[in-house]
Amino acid sequence: MSHTSIKEVFAAINRMQSDGVIDRYAIGGAVGATFYLEPVATLDVDVFIAFHPEPGHLILSPQPIFDYLTTLGATIEGEYLVIAGWPVQFLPPTNTLVEEAIAEARQTDVDGEPTWVFTAEHLAAIALQTGRAKDKARLLQFIEAGALDTDRLDAILKKHGLAKKWQKFERQFLKDEP
């Protein structure tokens, strides 16, 4: 099987950022969660990005990203760009929570390659907001691992209108109530 390297993915994204194709970015999903938890098995990498809007276009387009990365050797598979063997999905912020998560992402380092990762509290809040079964399972992992600053999470949930959803989640999974 061919070698795959997430570090090469980060290097390509950093290069794209320094060349001005994208603004800030942050790693989310399972690869982001792995920063705080035990390795979380996944087949792809979710990269949330602040897009540069093209002049005269109201709809944000990922085309500049696809054009840039394919010249570096990435290949296109459906919605994914395959970089260094990893399918990578570039996602625009769809709401203010994700915008804030990108803005407040923390910088880290992978064998000398800098990268940005969502905070644990933002990953948890996004998981709650998304609300699929696997997102709830991940949220429980964060709680069980003691990886969350509860005051910070509470503030994020209130700010983004997720307090009721959290109460329901709490009743269902943490208090064992219907």
């Binding site: 099987m1 795959t4 997430i6 570090k7 792995t34 920063f35 390795p39 098995a41």
Partner: peptide, 18 residues
Amino acid sequence: LAARPYAEKLRLLEQLRE
């Protein structure tokens, strides 16, 4: 596993994926 450095956890994740 959670306490290991991020780079090391990502290498484990690569192995899991493969």
